[in-house]
Amino acid sequence: MSTLLSVEDLQIRTAARPLVSGISFSIAAGERVGLIGESGSGKSLTALAVLGLLPDTMRVTGSITLDGHPVIGARDRDLVPLRGRSVAAVFQEPMTALDPLMRIGDQVAEVVRRRALRDGTKPGRAEIASRVLALLERVALPEPARIARAFPHEISGGQRQRGAIAMALACRPKLLIADEPTTALDVTTQAEILKLLETVVRDEGMGLLFISHDLPVVATVAERALVMRHGALIEEGPVGTLFGRPSHPYTEGLVAAARAFDAALEFAP
């Protein structure tokens, strides 16, 4: 499998202190990787670095190669097409990712149009509308025609997250970055969104970088996982091995805590 994303010796620091210190990892095309860490571990900063979206106040060194293109040191002008074509992101709070004054359908249509322009085609209005509906159906939104006309505040949190995923899919990216995409959702909605993410990523052959503090959630969607703490990468491996025989004491602690919750439900079928 070819390497889709390769991060080497990534360091992020502010003037005052280092935030991420020398981490390296790679994601192959179509691979689903989990990035586990607690608050302050630097996991979200790592994701922003891959997207080239870190604030100017932070100094970044090392190298990030995404789909053959360098990210660190690239001009923003060169990153914009990369973000649309090679990588897309879904964040924790879909309400802030969506424009509150724009109908869901129009927001998805905007992405479809931009992606088409980049491919050198200029689809007509009807063509775009039908692609938008297809995308909303793809993320299993009920009554896609009605939702397309709705504003973000008129639909539920789970539906908004589906809308955000539809926008990400509209880019047809090779890598999808999902940063705590289900943390703000109910358990039952979370289960549906996780299932949806897994299917679309698998069907489209996309790579997935799934960032979460929640071990069982990562276990549900990822094949391989990385564990970060205090800005450093402390352990990585296939999910089965990592959660079955963790080697770092910190990972051991996390796994034990997560298993304690599972054990409380052991009477369940």
Partner: peptide, 23 residues
């Protein structure tokens, strides 16, 4: 937990993500 009677309770339990079996 052993015998959830209501479908909603069953759904809640099924939706709660679990750790993978030990390998």
């Amino acid at each position: 937990l052993a015998r959830p009677a209501h479908p909603y309770t069953r759904q809640l339990l099924a939706s709660t993500p679990r750790m993978p079996e030990r390998v």
